[in-house]
Amino acid sequence: MKKALVTLLAALTCLPAVATEEVNIYSFRQPFLIQPILDDFTKQTGIKTNVVFAKKGLIERVKREGRHSRADLVLTSNFSALIQLEDENLTQTISSDTVAKNIPANFRDPEGQWVALTKRVRNVYSSKARTGKLDALTYEALADEQYRGKICTRSGKHPYNLGLVASMIAHHGEAKTKAWLEGVKENLARKPQGNDRAQVKAVKEGLCDLAIGNSYYFGKMMEDEKQKAWADAVYINFPNQKDRGSHINVSGVVLTKHAKNTENALKLIEFMTDNKAQNMYASMNMEYPVKPGVELSKLVASWGEFKEDSLPLSEISKYRPLALKLIDEVKFDL
C-alpha cells in the first residue's frame, strides 16, 4: 500500500524539484535591498534565488523545520540574530578561502558560523540650528543633565539600541549601565517610538535636539526629496572618537545546518563578500562595506573617517539578554 501511495504522490507532486540550480534564502532584510544583488548573482551564475522575507520569526521557522528546511541561507539585519542562529545550533561552518580573504577576522565568527556583510554606526544626530556639531560627544554624555528633555530615540528593545546597551555593559558593567539608562530615560523628549528616521524628523521639527540613530537612515533620507529637508537640519556625529570609538552593528549571513544547496549557497556568500556586491549592498542602504578597500558611496564617504569600537561583536552579544533586562527594569519604553 505504501508503494502505491508513493507512486501516486510522486506522480501528483512536483514538489522537491531537484533539477534546477537554486538557492533558498530566508531574509530579515527587505527584498528591495537585496534583490538587485541577487539578480546580478543569477545573471552571472545562472543560479536561481528564492526569498522569504519577514521581520520576525524566521529563526523559529528554520528551527522548527529542522532537517527538512529548504532554507540554505539566512540573511539578518543585526548581529544578535547571527549569534542566536549560532546558539540555536542552526548553522554550519562557512568554509571558503574567498570569504576568509575578503572579510577581516573580527567580522567573522571565530568558528566560521556566520559572516558579516555590512556595518553601520550607532550615531547621534544633533540639530544644526540649536546644538551644532558635537565632535566630542560620548554615549555616556547622553545621560547628562544638560540634555534633559532633548533626546529622541526608538524603542529601547530594538536590536540596534539593545546592541548599544550591551556594549555599554561590556565596557562599564551592569550597575553603571543601569544608572546611565535611567539618565537617558530622564532626558527623553518623548516616549521611545518610531524608527530612526522619525527621530531625525523630530529634531528637524524642534521636538528634540539630539537623536540616536543608525548612519544609513541619514543617507537614505538625503536621497528622498521630502525627507532631505529633515536630514539637512541635523549634523551626523560619531560618538566616543576620543576613546574607544563608535558602536557598530552589522548585517550578516549564515549557512543553515540542513542546507540542501550548500555549493550554490557558498557561491552566493562569496559573491556577496566580493567587491561589486559589497559596494552595491553597502551603497544600496548607505551602509559601510565590511571588505576593506571597497569604495564607499559618495555620500557615506562625505561623513568622514571615524574610529570604530574594536570590541568583538561576539563579546558584546553576551550582554544582550542583560541589556534587555535592564531596559525592562528601568521601564525605558513605558
Binding site: K2, V6, L9, A10, T13, L15, P16, S69, R70
Partner: peptide
C-alpha cells in the same frame, strides 16, 4: 527508503 520524499508538504 522510498523514492518519494515529501519534504515540507
Amino acid at each position: 527508503g522510498t523514492q518519494f520524499e515529501p519534504g515540507l508538504l
